[in-house]
Computed example of a mutant assay.
Amino acid sequence: MEVEIKQCPSCERVIKGKFPVDMPGPLQYGLGVQAFIINLLACQMVALKRAQALVYSIIDVVIAEATMLQFILRLHAALENWEVRATEKLLLEAVMHVDETSLRVDKTNYWIHVHSAGGIALKKLHRKRGIKAMEENDIIPRYMGKLIHDCWASYFSYSNCGHGLCGSHLLRELTFVVETNRYRWARRMKRLLQATYKRVSDCEKKCLDDREYARLLKCYRKILELGTLEMPAIPDKPAGKRGRIAKSDAHNLLERLQKHEASVLLFARDPLVPFTNNRGERDLRMSKVKQKVSGCFRSEIYAHAYCRITSYLQTMAYKGVNPMIAIQMALAGELGGE
Rank of each mutant, 00 (worst) to 15 (best):
E88C: 06
I148L: 03
R50P: 10
M45I: 11
K146M: 06
M45S: 14
L54E: 01
G162P: 00
L125A: 07
R129W: 10
F156G: 00
I131L: 14
I38L: 00
G167K: 09
L147C: 06
G162C: 00
A117Q: 12
K49A: 11
H76I: 05
K132Q: 13
F156V: 04
S157D: 13
A53I: 03
I37E: 06
C43T: 12
R50C: 13
V62L: 14
K146D: 10
E65A: 04
I63L: 05
H126Q: 11
L92I: 00
I131Y: 10
L92G: 08
A77W: 14
K124W: 07
I37H: 01
L54F: 09
S154A: 10
L75F: 09
G119Q: 14
E88G: 06
C161P: 09
E135Y: 12
A86L: 08
E80M: 10
L75P: 03
M144F: 14
E88I: 08
T67V: 15
R85W: 02
Y155L: 08
S154D: 07
F36N: 01
E83I: 00
C166S: 04
V95D: 00
Y110T: 00
Y158P: 04
F156E: 08
V62A: 13
I139C: 02
E83K: 10
E136L: 11
L91D: 04
C166Y: 12
G30R: 03
Q52H: 05
E88N: 11
T101H: 01
C151P: 04
G32A: 08
I131N: 13
I139Q: 07
V46P: 06
L69C: 14
R129N: 02
G32F: 00
C161S: 09
N160R: 06
V84E: 13
D138P: 10
W82N: 01
G164Y: 04
E100G: 01
L165Y: 05
E83H: 14
A78F: 04
S157K: 06
A53D: 15
R50G: 15
M144H: 15
L125T: 04
K107C: 07
I58E: 11
L41M: 10
V95Y: 06
I112P: 00
H163I: 06
E136Y: 11
D106N: 15
H115M: 07
W152H: 12
D150W: 03
A117K: 14
L48W: 15
H149P: 13
K132T: 10
E135R: 14
K89M: 07
C151R: 14
Q44E: 13
L147N: 00
S168T: 06
E65F: 13
S168H: 09
C151M: 07
V33F: 01
T87E: 01
I112S: 00
R85T: 01
A47G: 15
K107L: 13
G30Y: 04
N109R: 09
S102C: 08
K49M: 15
Y56M: 04
W152R: 11
